[in-house]
Design a protein around this nucleic acid. Structure first.
Length: 633
RNA sequence: GCGCCUGUAGCUCAGUUGGAUAGAGCGGUGGUCUACGAAACCAAAGGUCGGAGGUUCGAAUCCUCUCAGGCGCGCCA
């Protein structure tokens, strides 16, 4: 990591400088150093011609010490920055900016590092192995995933990948809401359809789940286990029962439930239904390259008298009280807007009761940091989750709630709210089928969590060649093509190059003698990876030459990947990876257009090596986003 | 009514805790292929940063007010 390291070094040296020179006049307080110096930036300047990097340190310092910014800048330059080996061509400009370029010495040294680290290039240990749990999607198992879930899934998974690459121990968790009244309703719907499909004459609950969905689930249940969920098979032919069913059509839901329960095992059907739905959801997520480490079932919170024990604990800590025959949690004493009901009149626990137990459970499992990624429709949760955390004596900083804004659907210029499209449903599965996982993943992680993004269905449906994901993938495919070309050229004996500069893998030399084996390698699934991997292993990347501006710029972008990865982590912003990728791909295309790697029969080995390194970085970054790195398109 | 989020080019969005001439992509305009893949490259055009005040050397960024949009505010989950 270059930028972050330099900034840290700069701050450290400035502190020493300040404490020695300025402290005596009282302008600088060592205890407040962090706050006073926090405004110091070291980053790429807006205008590239100023340099690769720039710092406003002199201006911040000048305001503390009441000195002339230009004079301070000159001093910082001679005393500190000019001594850095990483930089070159330093200049001090008007208000007090210090601009500089990355030294070629540093660039070359770090290019070699890319080949050495390969798949792990850019990774760091900043996380220090801290256990961090990311809970996301957690859609109810009573329906399919909608477009919004797709966005949160992409963001959550990419963010998890970014955390892992930054040295955190990440657990991706999906919380399955399989307990409570919604599940009871879902179970009843399933049981009703189940009985109906065996000839029973029941009416479908009016406020039930979409019938098509439930029918789908039931047909799978019947396909796998037939009438196994009947309580009484004899009842089917009973005339008295039929009368009862007739009557039930006019009755209310309570009777419907009673009658249904008499003949079918509602809760078992419900459990099976939930499993089927979760299976579907995980399949959809799998299509998006997302695998959860843990599927946590809400119902498991209620086993072993855990609920009763938790309530007793809360009572002991004086966190709950009774009012209007219900049991309340004193959430307002811990920052929530009001107190929350834990047990309803009648003894049923609320969803909030689960929240309490779930959070306690997470802490008990040893996670240091908890991240909840919630949809904007759940933003009311932030305060109550923090309230639980505080009451449990946890540091609020370790319970982070990230709110992902909703996705608005646009079709032919018309906008739809996701929730209003129940009649004409366009689900995540449909989107994946229409545009493919790569485009979905790339697009959904391309914006910050905060943007209210529009998803244009009509645009997504047409496979636009101007799609940024193709642009990035195309860079990778181009490189794969070059690598193949080089291999073929060598084996066919049509390519000349200085062998000292490019060490060919041993198996290539074998292939030159035995061309029949070539086809086998090419046809094998790992063929390309073998070609690429052996090239990386057999070569030294510290001796390449950067002979043009385009190559130098590309190389600098390559070595700044670790910084991009760090930034994406610190800011919890996967979109920064998208931006980096786009910039890298652009720089590669630009380079490619201006310089030939293979010129007629001559291979430029330095350029070829840069291309190999570019491929590594493209693949690393694409992997973080869960987007494939194709060899052909 | 209260709370959270958003408003930047025709469209979709960046702009890291206040910094230099507000940036990309798409679309539109005009150029590039007997060339390692043109799914690419190059050039110019496009803006009172929703509006109004304020804070200071300096504001898209911070404060106040205001307009517009999204989402919440249950003994539902």
């Amino acid at each position: 990591m270059l930028i972050d390291d330099l900034r840290r070094r700069l701050l450290k040296e400035i502190k020493q400088y300040l404490s020695g020179i300025v402290q005596k006049n009282g302008l600088f307080d060592a205890n407040r150093a962090e706050a006073q110096l926090s405004g110091i930036n070291l980053s790429a300047p807006k205008n590239k011609s100023f340099g690769d990097l720039s710092t406003n340190a002199a201006m911040v310092l000048a305001s503390i010490t009441k000195n002339n910014p230009m004079a301070v800048a000159e001093k910082l330059n001679t005393d500190i920055i000019s001594k850095w080996k990483e930089v070159a061509n330093i200049s001090v400009i008007k208000p007090g900016f210090i601009n500089f370029f990355i030294s070629s010495e540093y660039v070359l040294k770090n290019l070699a590092d890319i080949a050495y680290k390969n798949d792990n290039y850019g990774h760091n240990e900043n996380g220090g192995g801290i256990k961090i749990q990311v809970e996301f999607v957690s859609a109810n198992p009573t329906g399919n995933l909608h477009i919004g879930h797709g966005r949160w899934a992409a963001l959550g998974d990419s963010l998890s990948n970014i955390f892992t690459a930054n040295g955190y121990d990440v657990c991706r968790e999906y919380y399955v809401n399989d307990y409570g009244s919604q599940i009871e309703k879902f179970s009843l719907c399933i049981a009703v359809i189940y009985l109906k499909s065996f000839g029973f004459n029941l009416h479908y609950p009016e406020d039930g789940y979409p019938e098509e969905l439930v029918k789908d689930v039931v047909s799978r249940i019947i396909a796998e286990s037939g009438d196994a969920y009947f309580k009484s098979r004899a009842g089917q032919a009973d005339a008295g029962f039929k009368l009862m069913l007739e009557k039930s059509r006019k009755d209310n839901g309570a009777d419907l439930e009673k009658i249904t329960g008499q003949f079918a095992d509602i809760s078992s059907l419900g459990r099976r239904g939930v499993e089927i739905m979760i299976g579907r959801i995980s399949e959809t997520l799998h299509l998006m390259n997302i695998e959860f480490d843990n599927w946590f079932y809400e119902s498991s919170l209620y086993s072993d008298k855990n609920f009763e024990k938790t309530v007793m604990e809360l009572e002991k800590k004086n966190l709950i009280y009774k009012k209007d025959d219900a049991l309340w949690f004193k959430a307002s004493e811990y920052g929530d807007e009001k107190d929350r009901v834990v047990i309803r009149t009648g003894g049923q626990p609320t969803y909030f009761a689960s929240d309490i137990m779930y959070l306690i459970n997470k802490v008990k499992r040893g996670f240091d940091r908890l991240i909840y990624i919630l949809g904007a429709d759940h933003h009311g949760y932030i305060k109550r989750l923090h309230a639980i955390g505080r009451a449990a004596g946890l540091d609020e900083k370790n319970i982070e709630v990230i709110i992902g804004q909703l996705v608005r659907l646009v079709e032919n210029g018309q906008t739809f709210k996701m929730s209003k499209r129940k009649g004409n449903v366009y689900m995540l599965e449909d989107l994946l089928e229409e545009v493919g996982s790569d485009a979905v993943r790339y697009f959904f992680s391309a914006n910050s969590f905060d943007t209210h993004m529009d998803f244009d269905i009509s645009l997504a449906k047409q496979k636009s060649s101007t799609n940024p994901v193709y642009y990035v993938q195309y860079a990778h495919a181009r490189i794969a093509n070059i690598i193949n070309k080089v291999k073929e050229g060598f084996i066919e004996g049509k390519l000349d190059f200085n062998e000292g500069e490019l060490n060919l893998p041993a198996n290539w030399i074998e292939l030159r003698k035995n061309k029949a084996a070539l086809k086998d390698i090419n046809d094998s699934a790992e063929g390309f990876e073998n070609i690429f991997g052996s090239l990386i292993l057999s070569n030294d990347f510290s001796n390449l030459k950067l002979s043009s501006n385009e190559e130098t710029e590309l190389a600098k972008t390559l070595i700044l990947y670790p910084d991009a990865l760090n930034d994406a982590c610190v800011n919890q912003a996967p979109y920064m990876i998208n931006q980096y990728l786009y910039r890298l791909a652009g720089q590669f295309h630009f380079f490619y257009k201006h310089h030939r790697i293979i010129d007629e029969t001559i291979l430029n080995t330095s350029r070829f090596k840069i291309v190999l390194l570019t491929r590594i970085v493209l693949a690393c970054a694409l992997k973080l986003l869960g987007v494939s790195a194709p060899e052909k398109m």
